[in-house]
Design a protein around this nucleic acid. Structure first.
Lengths: 210, 210
DNA sequence: GTCTATACCGCGATAGAC
DNA sequence: GTCTATCGCGGTATAGAC
């Protein structure tokens, strides 16, 4: 977790004296939240300005363009995901691929939860610009790491053999990524619980254990 | 499956003589495809006109507005889903909730595959307009039917009891709905195969059966 | 059912004062 | 770091001829 420079995190608007306005990171947080709620394309700079209570041009002091906001958000998500997935796969390198896969899935859930807004935005990118295409490419690369783990576990005979490993990868990603549609870290379910639930359902299935 | 009026399904552009141009349904198919590829908000009427090789105003002959295109697409997805889920839950009414749940999941996969473009669009709706909010509400109602089935199966003791039934519902939806991100009916995997794979992984889990 | 031309608006972004 | 004012573009949608 690399921290960013924080200047005046408090409420703006009342201008306490000294430095008014927003710092760059606060603008980014609000932008990500709005992008997720309305969609990136459906969110105008004016929407964000109104939401923050400042004028449009004030935002251009912090970010060169609307796309620069998106870029910063996608970078955060991609860096968090790639480092976490790589670390998880690495920390368990002497175990079976099956165990490493399970550890990686749980790690992916944790990082998704920790960076939920940024990851949500990343997962909705459609590839409409060079920036978005680049993000999709980086994401595809991360996915490939997990797909490799699935193939290894399948080769070791620990996964069901009636479903293609590539399909298994897709289904695993599908369930994990779908958390962005409803899970909230400040809700009633702790991150450890949801990570265990996802891994449990994925690996043991829904049926009651006898 | 209610059919729509089809007039001149053939290739346009060369104007064979008689009636040139497109029928309403062809315009809708292409619109849905573009909306899915670029996102609804990022797709302009001009994009669609260029894609079809006609002028913008020609499109307004078939649909009153851009939103009317979205409305028609969402209706198709919602009608298909609700009727299919209701039918599946109904056809197996004398079996256990567990078996009915599994049958409903497979039916949901099939209908999702059959109406893939429209369902994909539906799942990406954010609620940015009254129309979109209405679609989200109808979708929530369909989800509730499956959630009820999950609760029944849990009450009958056939589901693992270490995960909340509401969470199970979310995870099931997550995996099923994620098919829209990659599955293609004209690809190498037949619909029956993917439906069996999803149900198998969900209910038995990924582990190799001993 | 299509076309050209256009009205009208909101978008991203900039200039320059405070 | 903020503001007002504005530019230029591209958006949805319409008018009316063919």
């Amino acid at each position: 977790m690399s921290d960013v420079d924080v200047e005046a995190p408090g409420q703006p608007g009342r201008r306490p004296r000294g430095r008014p306005g927003y710092d760059r990171d606060t603008v980014l947080r609000r932008a990500i939240e709005l992008f997720n709620r309305q969609g990136y394309d459906a969110t105008s700079i004016n929407d964000l300005a109104v939401d923050l209570g400042v004028s449009k041009s004030a935002l251009y002091h912090h970010f060169d363009s609307k796309e620069a906001l998106l870029s910063a958000a996608l970078d955060e998500a991609l860096e968090g995901l790639s480092s976490a997935v790589a670390a998880a796969a690495d920390a368990t390198r002497d175990e079976s691929a099956y165990d490493r896969l399970r550890a990686t899935v749980e790690a992916a859930v944790h990082i998704l939860v920790a960076h939920l807004p940024a990851v949500t935005l990343l997962l909705r990118v459609r590839g409409n610009s060079p920036l978005e295409m680049s993000a999709l490419e980086r994401r595809r690369h991360i996915d490939e790491q997990l797909a490799t783990l699935v193939r290894q576990a399948a080769a070791e005979g620990d996964l069901r053999d009636d479903v293609d490993p590539e399909v298994i990868s897709r289904l695993v990603f599908g369930m994990v990524n779908s958390l962005t549609d409803w899970y909230r870290p400040d809700g009633p379910i702790p991150p450890d619980t949801i990570a265990a639930a996802v891994a449990g359902v994925l690996f043991q299935g829904l049926h009651a254990s006898r």
